[in-house]
Amino acid sequence: MPLISVIIPVYNGENTIRETIESVLNQTFKDFELIVINDGSTDSTLDVVSNIQDSRLKVFSYPNAKQAASRNRGLSQATGEYVSFIDADDLWKPDKLEAQLKALQENPEAGVAYSWTDLIDESGNFIRGGANIYWQGESYARMLLNDFVESGSNPLIRAQAIKEVGNFDESLPPAEDWDMWIRLASRYPFVVVPSAQVLYRVRANSSSTNVSKMEAVSLRIIERAYAEAPASIQHLKRHTLGNRYKYLVFKALEEPPVRQKALTAIRFLWQAFIYDPVLLRRRIIWKVLLRIAIIVLLPSKLAQTWLNKFKQFTDILTLVILIRVDIVPAQR
């Protein structure tokens, strides 16, 4: 029986699935099974996968049911003591599994090991690094404040821990990852591998670009999580909401520029001010407002040209850096 089960949900991933699978098969750690869940693909995904010869590769096909359901279907087939997921367009560095497994074996009380993430574009070119948050140990409050794991392609998880907290909630895309990490953090410590081992591909049509849906689902997750959280951390709720709205502003204004999303960003920014009034005094707000103005007032192609030309004045990455993951003492 393999020590690790790796699960790849894929829907119409013919352009990237081979590279993703190869990044798993080329891991320095070899004792794993690779479970590909074909989620009703209508392109040549199955043909691409069938041409990859490796005894560790197992393929299961189902009617289309979206990513969370596909991950749960993968869990039903998994036999490993540890489980990891990778989306069909993301990549792993070769030592990802080895380093995370070592971290969990050296910290037997931990249920989850996570690494740092780099963002790449659709062609595989580096865009920027992730948040690179270093945190180990009890992680419940910090995970409530912000999803510092950053993607579903990141963690290695003890299978027993998932059995205890339950499967992915299929009603919560595109934020079902955060919900799962919150539930895991409520019971298990986390351990970090401080190295960028996950390459997250930013795609214009990914589910995470539907910012209005992400807002609605995020609010559901926050309400449910704080309904179950102890009284000692209830004071963090407004910080969680402030953090989430900062993140939503950033997501709404990511490239390519879309006028409707920029208009939505105005509402998100107002909510961020409500929950974090200090944000009004930050210089980054002027960059955010300028970026919104360019996207709203100019045609898409011209807006992109201006954003590139005046990048120094429209780069809003600092907004993500302002997301708080420190523990704020309760007010007396």
Rank of each mutant, 00 (worst) to 15 (best):
I8V: 15
E19V: 13
I21S: 12
I21K: 13
S23H: 01
Q27T: 03
I35G: 09
I35L: 15
D43A: 01
S44V: 08
S44F: 09
T45N: 12
S50T: 01
S50C: 00
I52V: 12
I52L: 07
I52N: 13
R56G: 04
A65H: 09
R71P: 02
R73D: 08
T79S: 10
E81Q: 13
Y82S: 07
V83K: 09
K96D: 03
E98A: 02
Q100H: 05
L101G: 12
K102H: 12
A103P: 06
E109T: 10
G111W: 05
T117F: 01
S123D: 15
R128G: 04
R128Q: 09
A131E: 10
I133C: 03
I133G: 04
W135H: 15
S151Q: 08
S151A: 12
I157P: 13
A159R: 15
V165K: 07
F168S: 14
S171Y: 05
E176L: 02
W181C: 00
I182H: 10
L184T: 13
L184N: 09
P189A: 07
A196F: 00
N205E: 15
N205V: 11
E215S: 01
E215Q: 11
K237N: 01
A252C: 11
L253I: 14
F268C: 11
W270P: 02
I274L: 14
D276W: 04
I285H: 05
R291V: 01
R291D: 06
I294V: 15
I294Y: 06
I295L: 08
K301H: 10
K301R: 15
K301V: 09
Q304L: 11
W306G: 04
F310P: 01
L317A: 11
I323P: 03
V325C: 03
P329A: 00
P329T: 00
